[in-house]
Nucleic acid binder design. Structure first.
Lengths: 226, 226
DNA sequence: GCAAAAGTGTTGATCCTACACCCATGG
DNA sequence: CCATGGGTGTAGGATCAACACTTTTGC
C-alpha cells in the first residue's frame, strides 16, 4: 500500500461591508504556483494546531485582521486543485466589522487588499469556486441567522442594516415592512443617540442585543428575514 | 520548519429508515485503536481519488450499501481526536432507500449493522459528535429540501411520509394539514395503485417527481415543510 | 360488526405585502 | 425653501393551525 501523500490546508473567505459594497479580503501570492495572482488567505495546517487555530494564525500573519465571526464552510479535495502537490483545503467563512477593516501595511511583496465582490481579479487555484460558495452561504445565512450584525459597526443606523440586506441579497426591500419585522424580533436596542449623516433628518442608532438573541434562541425562536 | 504530518480520512454517516425508526450504519472495528468498538464507516483517502470517491469506495468495501444521497457534512480536525496519529476527517452525510438496505453478509471479524439512533452502542473516536451533527443536519434539511424521499421506497404511502417526518422531527404533525401542504407543492405523483397494509382501508401509492421538483426549483420555488 | 388505517374541508387567527405622506435637518 | 434621507399605519390577501367524521378494508 502506497503511503498517503496529501497535505492539509485552510483557506478563509473574509467578508467586510462598507459603502454599500460587499468586500472580500485577498492576498497577492509571491510564490509559485500562481505567482502574482490574488488568492484567499490561507496555508498549510501545522501539526499541533486545530483547523480554527490555523485559520486565525494565517489571517494574523498574512492580513492582520481581527475576525468577528468564523465558521467552517466546506472542504475542497479534488486531486489536481493544486498543480504541484495534492492539497485538501478546509475553507472557512469569516465576517469582519468595520472597526476591524484595517489591514497590514503592505510590508513588501506580500500585498493584501479588500476587493468588492463585484470587481474581482482573477484568482489562484479554485478560489473563485470557494468564494462563490461563501457568497451563497452568506446570502442564505443572512435570512435565518442574525449574522448581518457582524458586518456592521456596533452602533448602526437602521438604514445601514437595510442597505446591507439589499446589497447582499441583491433585491429591494420594503423599508416599512423590514423595520417592522426586525423590530418585532426584539433583538435590537434603540440607543438614545442620533446621528446626522451629512444631509437629511438625523437617524437613531441601534445596537444588536446579543444576550437577548441568545435567550430567544434557547426558546426555539426563529430568526427569519426574507 | 517541521514537515506536515497529518493524515486525511473520510467518514460517512449513513441513514436508513425502516419501521418508524431512523437507523445508522456502523461497522465494528477489528483493529486498534478502539478495537471491537462500533464506528462510522470510513478510512484514509488514497492519493489519487477525490473525497467523494473515497467515501464511495469505503462504503463499498466495508458495508456494500448503495447510496442514494450524499453530501459533505463537516471536517473534524482537532489534534488528538485519533489517539495515534493526527487525522483530519471529512465527514459525509448519506441516505439510503429501503431498496438498498441490505448490507454485506458479515464475512468474519468485520461486522456491519444498522442501529437505531435511539439505541446506539458506544462509538469509537469522536464519532458520536459527528453522528449528532448529521442528525441535526437531517432534521434541518428535511424542512427545506425534499430529501425525505431518499429514505423511502420509490413508491410509498402518504402515511409513510408522514411517519418519517414525525419520527425524524420528533413531533406530531396534523395529518390533514400535512397532506394538503405536500400535495400543494405539486412534486408528488399519485399512482393508480392501492396497497392494503394488513388491516384498515387500502392506501394509494405515491412517487416523488424528481423532474417536476427540478423544474420548480429553477423558478425559485421554496420547499418548506415544518 | 368492529377495529384499524385512509381520506377529506372549514374557519378564525396570523402573517405578509403593497403602498404614500410627513418630519427633521443642512445647505 | 428645497433636497435629502428618516420615520410611520393600514387594509386585503395568503397562509397556518386547529379541529372530527366518513370510508374501506381484514378479521
Amino acid at each position: 500500500m502506497v503511503r498517503q501523500n496529501i497535505k492539509i490546508a485552510v483557506d478563509a473567505v473574509v467578508f467586510g461591508y462598507k459603502d454599500r459594497n460587499l468586500n472580500v479580503l485577498l492576498i497577492k501570492r509571491d510564490v509559485a504556483p500562481y505567482r502574482n495572482y490574488w488568492a484567499l488567505p490561507g496555508g498549510l495546517v501545522l501539526n499541533e494546531e486545530s483547523l480554527e487555530q490555523a485559520v486565525e494564525r494565517e489571517l494574523r500573519e498574512e492580513t492582520n485582521v481581527t475576525i468577528d465571526y468564523l465558521e467552517q464552510l466546506y472542504s475542497f479535495g479534488e486531486p489536481g486543485r493544486d498543480p504541484r502537490n495534492r492539497v485538501v483545503s478546509v475553507a472557512y467563512f469569516a465576517l469582519v466589522k468595520p472597526e476591524h477593516h484595517s489591514i497590514k501595511a503592505d510590508t513588501d511583496a506580500n500585498d493584501v487588499a479588500w476587493f468588492s465582490v463585484k470587481e474581482l481579479p482573477e484568482l489562484a487555484f479554485d478560489h473563485l469556486k470557494i468564494l462563490r460558495m461563501a457568497k451563497d452561504r452568506l446570502k442564505n445565512k443572512l435570512s435565518y441567522e442574525p449574522i448581518g450584525f457582524d458586518l456592521l459597526a456596533n452602533k448602526f443606523l437602521f438604514s445601514d442594516l437595510e442597505k446591507l440586506y439589499t446589497t447582499i441579497l441583491e433585491k429591494d426591500i420594503d423599508r416599512r415592512n423590514f423595520r417592522k419585522k426586525i423590530l418585532s424580533l426584539d433583538i435590537l436596542e434603540e440607543l438614545d443617540e442620533k446621528v446626522s449623516e451629512g444631509r437629511g433628518r438625523p437617524a437613531n442608532l441601534f445596537k444588536f442585543n446579543q444576550k437577548q438573541y441568545a435567550k430567544l434562541k434557547k426558546d426555539n425562536f426563529l430568526f427569519d428575514i426574507k
